[in-house]
Nucleic acid binder design. Structure first.
Length: 161
DNA sequence: GCCAACGTTGGC
DNA sequence: GCCAACGTTGGC
């Protein structure tokens, strides 16, 4: 039996540009990086159970002025153990995560393109059809979050894509 | 720098 | 299983 092809899904990941920016991703070998350091169960579950090869991802800069969606990436490798959790010297070290039973997972992300003009939070707020976007919910802190196909389309149109 | 909102931890 | 305390996130 042929495996059913699943419709492409859409995501958004947050990063503080001071620690890792979209430019850093563009400058990475093969424009690809492993998305390590996620230490939140819900975010992990989205990476582990949701993200599939070829899914598209908005790259969002948080804790910066202005916070904004700045680029588009794609899932280049599906989830595998986040080895930084095993590294005592790493700031994301988690002694509860063991190589034979890893708690934390990561994916690889590859940059596709930067937005010519970043879309700030202010740009996105109030846009029809984005009312329920996870990013725009009050108190939303999820660093890996799903985006619906409709939201994806609306944001891309705003970005002139 | 402030602080609201949230997730996690741990005592009970 | 509850919930207070704590640490972190992230917009402003």
């Amino acid at each position: 039996m042929t495996p059913t092809t699943r419709a492409r899904q859409y995501w958004l990941v947050k990063s503080e540009p001071d620690s890792f920016s979209f430019d850093d991703l563009l400058a990475s070998p093969n424009r690809t990086t492993c998305w390590d350091g996620v230490r939140n169960f819900q975010a992990r579950n989205f990476m582990r159970d949701g993200m599939r090869l070829g899914d598209l991802v908005f790259f969002y800069h948080s804790s910066t002025d202005p916070a904004a969606i700045v680029g588009i990436a794609e899932v280049a490798r599906e989830s595998y153990p986040d080895h930084t959790a095993f590294d005592r010297k790493d700031s994301h070290y988690d002694p509860k995560s063991k190589p034979d039973a890893p708690t934390w997972m990561m994916v690889d992300l590859r940059a596709r393109e930067a937005l010519r003009t970043p879309l700030t939070l202010a740009d996105l707020r109030g846009v029809k059809g984005l009312e329920k976007m996870v990013l725009l919910q009050k108190g939303s802190r999820l660093s890996v979050q799903p985006v619906t196909a409709k939201e994806w389309e609306i944001v891309c149109r705003l970005a002139g894509l």
